[in-house]
Every structure is written in C-alpha cells, then in structure tokens.
C-alpha cells in the first residue's frame, strides 16, 4: 500500500502541466481580485484588510480547486481507462486507494498555499501580527484541503466521462460561493447565511479567518470538517469497492 502512495505522489510531481497550473492559479486569482484593494481598508468590525482576507480565501480556494478538480477528473479518467478495474483485482483495500489519492493531492496544495502567501507579502505588503500565524495558516489550510480531496475521490466515483467536469464545477462553485470563499457571508441574506454556516467550505474558511484574527480556530469548524472528512472518505472507499458499473 505504501508503494501505491509513493507512486501516486511521484506521478503527480511528474505531471508538470498540472503542477504548474494548480500551483500558480490561486496566486494569479489573488492578484486579480485583491489587486485594487488597499491594505489600509478594513472590513466590518474586524481590523483585517481586504488583501489579508483575500490571501486566506484564495489560498483556501486554490487548495480546494486543486484537490477537487484534480482528483475527480483523474479518477473518472482512470476508471474509464480501466486502471481501477485492474487495481480491484489486487488485494488493495478501498481505504488504500483513497489514502493514496489524498496523499497525492496534498503534494500539490502545499506549494500552492505557500505561493499565495509569498505573493501577498511581496506584492501587497501583507503583514500578520505574529509569526505563528503564518505557520498555523499553512497547516490549517493544508489539513483542511484533505476534506475536499476525499470529496474529489467520491465525485470521481459517482460520475463518469463527460459528466464529471460539469458536476465537479457545480459542486465546486456552489461550495465556494456558499462557504464565503469569494465574498464574506456577512453580505448574504439571513436564510442563506443559515445554510452557509453548515457548509464544509465555510468551516474551512473559518479556520483561516480565526487564525488571521489571532485566535485559535473554532471547535465547531474543526468538528464540522472532521465529520465531513469521515463522510467523504467513507463514501469514496465504499464507492471504490462497490463500483460494479462499467469502469
């Protein structure tokens, strides 16, 4: 099983185009969105400026994009090509496959998060109060992305062929917007805010926002993400073993 995890990581790193795009895309988006915002403007009742807020949002959004899109499409493709059928003829347990896919996704997200931070510091002059916040932000956003990597695996198993991309897109935009990764949920009407509160993306963004403000992440956010992780990874492993359709 370890060989599979190592091999999945290795071949992700070999895929230069994929690496290049997913690592640089969040930073490009960050510059586009936060480009005109001034560091002096603060939002609502916080002392956070737009460039800081967007830095965390885009790092989270970028990580989410990489793992969700990357995993679902690659898995759907592997199923179509029959590699997953071949793997199912080995003694590999379902969790082994899911673990390997999540591990290879995590390899891509770490550099993409760090590049967004570097761009924010160098181009937008973003500063945080304490050094631990940088480390905590990196770890929280990285760890949180695992939840969506598992969701990506599950989607790759539910959808096939041409349906994968639109389905992933809908889930991806829905989750991003509802979770407040693009705009603060405070601007939503109340009923939508109530829904947003339970979104995994909202909890994910919440991790980073709490750290930005110098606080520890909320227990509710962590618990919610843990529940979603178990749910998504469980569904992915079950679908891997269950997949009796033409793969």
């Amino acid at each position: 099983m370890n060989t599979l995890v190592k091999l999945e990581i290795k071949r992700t790193l070999r895929n230069k185009k994929f690496m290049f795009f997913t690592v640089l895309y969040p930073s490009a988006l960050y510059l586009l969105i936060a480009g005109g915002a001034k560091t002096s403007e603060t939002i609502g009742d916080t002392h956070l400026s737009l460039p800081v807020l967007f830095m965390v949002s885009m790092a989270s959004f970028g990580a989410l994009t990489a793992v969700l899109m990357g995993n679902s499409e690659r898995i759907a493709k592997e199923r179509e090509k029959g590699w997953v059928r071949q793997l199912r003829l080995t003694s590999l347990p379902g969790r082994g496959y899911v673990a390997a896919k999540i591990a290879s996704a995590a390899v891509v997200t770490l550099p993409s998060i760090i590049v967004v931070f570097l761009v924010a510091v160098m181009v937008k002059g973003v500063r945080l109060d304490a050094a631990w916040q940088w480390i905590a932000l990196t770890v929280a956003i990285w760890a949180g992305s695992i939840v969506f990597a598992a969701l990506g695996v599950a989607i790759g198993y539910l959808a096939t062929g041409d349906a994968v991309r639109p389905i992933t897109m809908i889930i991806y935009f829905g989750l991003s917007v509802l979770g407040g990764l693009w705009m603060p949920t405070a601007t939503f009407p109340q009923w939508l805010q109530n829904i947003a509160d339970w979104m995994p993306t909202h909890a994910y963004a919440g991790l980073g926002q709490a750290i930005e403000l110098g606080n520890a992440p909320h227990t509710k956010d962590i618990a919610l993400l843990a529940v979603y992780l178990v749910l998504f990874a469980g569904a992915a492993a079950w679908l891997y073993r269950k997949d009796t359709r033409k793969a």
Binding site: R11, R14, N15, E78, K81, G82, R85, Q86, L89, S91
Partner: peptide, 17 residues
C-alpha cells in the same frame, strides 16, 4: 488471498509511471 491473476481486455494501466 492472491489466488487469482487477471488480464482484462479493458484493464488500463496507471499513467505517468
């Protein structure tokens, strides 16, 4: 248990390895 080996017509191979 490792008692069966199979070669599928549609059995794809892992890419980039």
């Amino acid at each position: 248990r490792g008692k069966v080996g199979a070669m599928l017509q549609s059995g794809g191979l892992m890419e980039d390895v």
